[in-house]
Write a protein that binds this DNA or RNA. Structure first.
Lengths: 229, 229
DNA sequence: TGTCAAGTGTCAGCGGCTGTCACTAGCCTC
DNA sequence: GAGGCTAGTGACAGCCGCTGACACTTGACA
């Protein structure tokens, strides 16, 4: 129990001001997500959100640059777990395996992070709103490619490669990201919203990545060499 | 059921009304793209575009649902060529090869389609604006995933598969799409904006798709079996 | 306790976008 | 070729996301 203005400690308890700010931000996030989930994104005005959080519209825009930004506050927190997980993988591991394990192993942490702010159920409902609202889906995809760029940098560094000279990091991450997005969409559209379901779906789809590139699907074997020019 | 003035041909010449409409739309597209390329997207108001095309703002919105839509008028035309090319590939071809050849072979048609409306140079400048404007980049990515969904449907149909039962069509297209996007970005950022340069870049990156998923990059061989769970 | 600045509310305004309504001008019929 | 129909348009009013300016309140700290 530290007092405001404390000097000691690695993570000193923030002052009243800081705590109040955090409470306001959380209130705005929760109010926004709740409204989005019930009335939809376009059916919710910023004034509505501000009113629900009991602040002025101007204050909303001091916390979030846009209505869009508040929507992705929780996902942004979740993403950082994946980035950290990739960074924490043992060196020498095959790149695709690094990404695969990082994502699959992060799910518990991500789950905990989400629940700290909003119920998982609300998160899912908002995710469905994102998928079905063109403006939000677009923003979601843009954020995803930014994350991919960061992951490509990390992979390139791990492998000691120049990102602009060797295509493989970006190519790998692009393919990987594509599969992740497909599974996210299927998961959110499905019935089983458990973390385990998401985990299994991703694992299954990632395992199909190799075979899907294979020469001929009908043989149902994966004959290795793909399009040799 | 021929209209006045039309006598022959499977594609009757449209009436004055229709031609006037097309002229107005083309004028709006050209005015918009020219302004975007010079002043930037956000630096251009819809009033500016309407004024440049000599119509009212209200009329602009009768032709395009949004400022964003006019930006993607040309790309949308180009995309249809790719879809047609995929449809036209010989049956029995390996799916990845189908996509690869369809995209690579479409470039001349795409080039012609673009030039019919605006100079290729202007198109490229607008593309750079798209890449560097968050709102437009987001819209671009959303449109790309919609296209991917359509391609996945076509691939599944070619292979006689149920899109929702077999992950491979979506997985393949997602991986493929990711690589295409990476190459587009590199091309637009580079110096050589020729069609040939784009073609070669895509071919090279697509050929790296297999190796990038391979076990270990350092051996520089592609040992086939990837992440077996 | 007084000073300072962070945080906030209020107000005014711009730009994207929409609904409405009256008017003009191609098109079609007689 | 005159007149009616309606697609296309301009003018206007208004909503909503977002921003700048300014004054007021309140936590932080000497």
């Amino acid at each position: 129990m530290r007092r405001a203005g404390t000097v000691t400690g690695a993570v000193p308890r923030p002052g009243l001001r800081e705590r109040k700010k955090q409470r306001t931000r959380d209130a705005l996030v929760r109010a926004a997500l709740e409204l989005f989930a019930t009335r939809g994104y376009e059916g919710t005005t910023v004034d509505d959100i501000a009113a629900a959080a009991d602040v002025s519209q101007r204050t909303f825009f001091r916390y979030f640059a846009s209505k869009e930004e508040v929507t992705f506050f929780v996902p942004r927190l979740a993403e950082s777990h994946v980035v950290e997980a990739v960074r924490g993988r043992p060196p020498g591991e095959a790149p695709l395996e690094t990404l695969r394990r990082a994502v699959l192993d992060s799910w518990d942490d991500i789950h905990a992070t989400i629940e700290q702010l909003v119920p998982l159920d609300l998160h899912l409902r908002v995710y469905r709103v994102i998928e079905s609202t063109p403006a939000l889906l677009a923003a979601h995809l843009r954020r995803a490619t930014e994350l991919e760029e960061e992951l490509a940098r990390i992979i390139a560094e791990r492998e000691g490669l120049d990102l602009d000279a060797d295509p493989r990091p970006r190519v790998l991450v692009a393919a990987f990201g594509g599969v992740i997005r497909v599974t996210e969409r299927l998961w959110s559209a499905g019935d089983d919203i458990s973390v385990a379901a998401m985990h299994d779906l991703m694992a299954a789809y990632l395992d199909r990545l190799g075979p899907a590139l294979a020469e001929n699907w009908r043989t149902d074997r994966a004959p290795d060499r793909r399009t040799e020019t």
